[in-house]
């Protein structure tokens, strides 16, 4: 009696293990399939034009057969960089305040609020951008700097994206700072360090790997955000030269033209190439940051 039961249990265990392993491997294949699939789709345009031409020219007339991705790449980079520039210092300081200075009851209130805000759909951020940020740039801020701006600009995209990743960054940072053991703070404080010195020399240094990981996540999020940016970026296929120029990041390009692309195979291939660029950059970026992280961890012996 006992032996068949044991056999049955072990068989069940092995069976569960194989099913789970299969599911895990399958889901990892998704990553491979995605890369291969997008690459195959963009092969047509890669056969026609050299990679260099595609990436470095700025003439975008798909119907006439010129595909220069530079404006889109430049826009994507500009918008992402701007959003991180806006969000990083603000979120870092806010998180430091909340975790090191604020009372515990403040934390208890703020934490869930931040989590909830982090869940607001991006389309809502887009709506807010068109209602508040775009008019503000067009009417209030823009005229101080340039003759005319529609408000649908690099700046608007950067602000909307920056605000969108703010709650995510703040709650990630707080989480990271909380991990730093209290002993370190006490040790530094007992040497006569002010709170700010504790923050700078202990908290920030100790949680550097965590901060890097959080920023990587935020950059990935800002980098690929589509709908919110699409609503405020201005959608003009030229390289932006100032914050008040309209722009056209890659995700917006794909989203805007998906309807027309089927009419022209080469056009479709071009858009899939744009998706492939996004995929590839995120892939490389994540692996590179992981390597960097490992090195930082080793250096600081964390």
């Amino acid at each position: 009696m006992a032996v068949p039961l044991l056999k049955k249990r072990l068989a069940k265990d092995r069976c569960a293990r194989s099913v789970m392993l299969a599911l895990t491997v399958l889901s990892l294949l998704l990553l491979v399939a995605m890369g291969v699939g997008l690459y195959l789709k963009s092969e047509m345009i890669l056969d026609r034009y050299s990679l260099w031409t595609l990436l470095t020219t700025s003439d975008w007339k798909p119907l006439k057969g010129s595909f220069g991705f530079l404006p889109f790449i430049a826009s994507t980079l500009a918008v992402t960089a701007l959003s991180i520039l806006i969000a990083l210092p603000i979120s870092l300081l806010t998180a430091l305040y909340l975790s090191e200075y604020a009372h515990s009851w403040t934390k208890r209130v703020v934490f869930p609020v931040l989590d909830i805000l982090a869940g607001i759909p991006s389309v809502v951020y887009g709506v807010w951008g068109t209602l508040i940020i775009v008019p503000w740039i067009a009417d209030a801020l823009g005229p101080h700097f340039v003759d005319y701006t529609s408000g649908y600009t690099v700046l608007a995209s950067g602000i909307v994206l920056g605000v969108m990743i703010l709650p995510v960054l703040v709650s990630l940072f707080i989480e990271i700072f909380t991990i730093v053991p209290q002993d370190y703070r006490d040790a530094a404080a007992s040497l006569g360090a002010t709170k700010w010195q504790v923050c700078r020399k202990v908290i920030l240094r100790k949680s550097l790997p965590g901060i890097i990981a959080a920023v990587v996540l935020a950059i990935s999020k800002a980098f690929g955000e589509t709908i919110a940016v699409l609503m405020v970026c201005g959608n003009s296929a030229s390289i932006p030269h100032s914050l008040f120029d309209p722009c056209y990041p890659l995700p917006a390009l794909i989203a805007n033209n998906y309807g027309e692309m089927l009419s022209l195979p080469l056009y479709e291939s071009a858009l899939m190439f744009a998706a492939f660029i996004l995929f590839f950059i995120i892939l490389v970026f994540n692996f590179a940051s992981r390597l960097l992280l490992r090195r930082v961890e080793k250096r600081y012996k964390l």
Partner: peptide
């Protein structure tokens, strides 16, 4: 390795998922 891969998958923009699913 699995965790790293899911981190990457998590970071891939949804528009890329859309484009990929569309080709499929």
């Amino acid at each position: 390795f699995v965790r790293l891969s899911f981190d990457v998958l998590y970071g891939i923009p949804s528009i890329v998922y859309g484009a990929f699913a569309f080709t499929i």
